[in-house]
Design a binder for these strands. Structure first.
Lengths: 247, 247
DNA sequence: CGAGTAAAGGTCAAGGTGACTCTAACGTGA
DNA sequence: TCACGTTAGAGTCACCTTGACCTTTACTCG
């Protein structure tokens, strides 16, 4: 049962955040990468990850790497795929269980950045180590398709948000402008969101309503992978929105 | 880097086939299980699978187990999920990469059945070893949701088929009757199917047209997981339909 | 040869979606 | 202070999809 070279198990995470892009001016997807300090692909950028600790759950291992490399905890965490092709790593065989995570935009700005950790725009990545370019491509595809039939977009935002902010998230992920009126109709009829009764003040123009994520609504995917599939036990952080709110 | 008890990697496969159910009379989903001959859960039924051979691809390992236990080769094979919870196996930790497969109904009848391999109706399973009941539940959910937005239903059929046969597959998977006329309109407008010009003869009533899967149409999911994601290299077997066909 | 039944082609109304218009309500700057 | 620009938010209209249903065609079976 014990082979001479048993496959090694690793856990990696594709972490997405939204940031304003200096070039386009719009919000775009960014992700943190770590520089390889060891021999296979030394010096190249790679997805954060590591060997699977024998006593740690898969999702916990993914969340741990996330916290260690970026100092963030995810609002959304889900298993993406397991990559185990024979040629994907030089030397011994490595099977990587890859997760993908969404973090808040406001938190992503505070995230630790050093010589070995750096954020890149998801559309313009350098050559990565191993098959990580391929993995990111798949994670992007998964995010973009899932945004349209679930409500993961909320994971990029704080506890309360305006419909324009939520629309900005959708537009950034889908890379396409959405009609504000139709977007409002769609979101309101879906029941995924609840009016807090508050409005955002201090902004120019008409003050927008503040909405909250509707927890009592299980309109998301109800796959039999348990309630924590996708939504980590970590509760949403308190609202990070600086502007004051009035009735 | 070498831990005292590194996690062990296994590959299992949930294999679906359609068979007429003696009780209901309709077509229902069946799957083969193997009896445990070793200590954890000895005697209980479990999903076919085994340790990951160090020199074998993940999907190849899944297809191999499938062929060894049932003598069949899949028309459809896709990675389902990786289960790695700490408590899922007594003793050392086991991480299972689970695939799901669809095989032809006509082939499933010829499949090897012995004391240690037996087919069960997917809705009425006994208590299985490990977390395999949970895994089958998830695979069923995945099959039922995926039938509605892709064309995996063809994997249950031969090279040519009538729309009634294709509708039977959908009805069995979805457990709900579909309007024949509306189903025809939906399939024809989707372009997933091509009229062969032949008709099925020898049946009572008006002879139905025979259709063929439209290979040139890439209407399936085009995820960046490569062209063989889901559709194994094995080509579809020659048509197993006994009735003669005329122009 | 008539009866029965499924195949195949159609109609119709309800609901959802995209494109668009109109009014409300704020901050800003002259 | 007040017109202006801009966004929030409500509403309208045409088009397409979908479910329900109807009609005709074409075979086998008794």
């Amino acid at each position: 049962m014990t082979d001479p070279h048993p496959p090694v198990l690793a856990v990696s995470t594709v972490i997405f955040a939204l940031r304003p892009d200096v070039e386009s001016g719009f919000m775009t997807l960014w992700l943190p990468l770590v520089r390889r300090t060891r021999d296979p692909y030394l010096g190249l950028w790679a997805l954060p990850g590591g060997w699977l600790p024998p006593e740690e759950e898969l999702s916990t291992a993914a969340a741990s790497t996330l916290r260690e490399t970026t100092g963030l905890s995810p609002n959304y965490l889900e298993q993406l795929y397991t990559f185990g092709d024979l040629g994907r790593s030089p030397g011994s065989r490595v099977v990587s269980i890859v997760y993908w995570a969404l973090v808040q935009s406001t938190e992503a700005e505070l995230a630790a950045v050093g010589d070995n950790v750096q954020w890149f725009p998801a559309d313009r990545l350098p050559e990565l180590a191993f098959d990580h370019n391929h993995i990111v491509e798949y994670a992007l595809w998964r995010l973009r398709t899932k945004v349209e039939y679930s409500r993961i977009a909320h994971a990029f935002l704080g506890e309360t948000f305006t419909l324009a902010q939520l629309r900005d998230v959708h537009e950034a992920v889908l890379r396409r402008a959405l009609d504000p009126a139709n977007f409002r109709r769609m979101i309101e009829s879906s029941g995924t969101v609840v009016d807090t009764g508050l409005r955002l003040a201090g902004v120019p123009h008409r003050p927008p309503r503040l909405y909250r994520y509707n927890d009592s609504q299980s309109l998301t995917e109800q796959s039999p992978l348990g309630p924590s599939a996708g939504w980590p036990e970590t509760p949403l952080q308190s609202t990070p929105h600086p502007p004051r709110s009035t009735t």
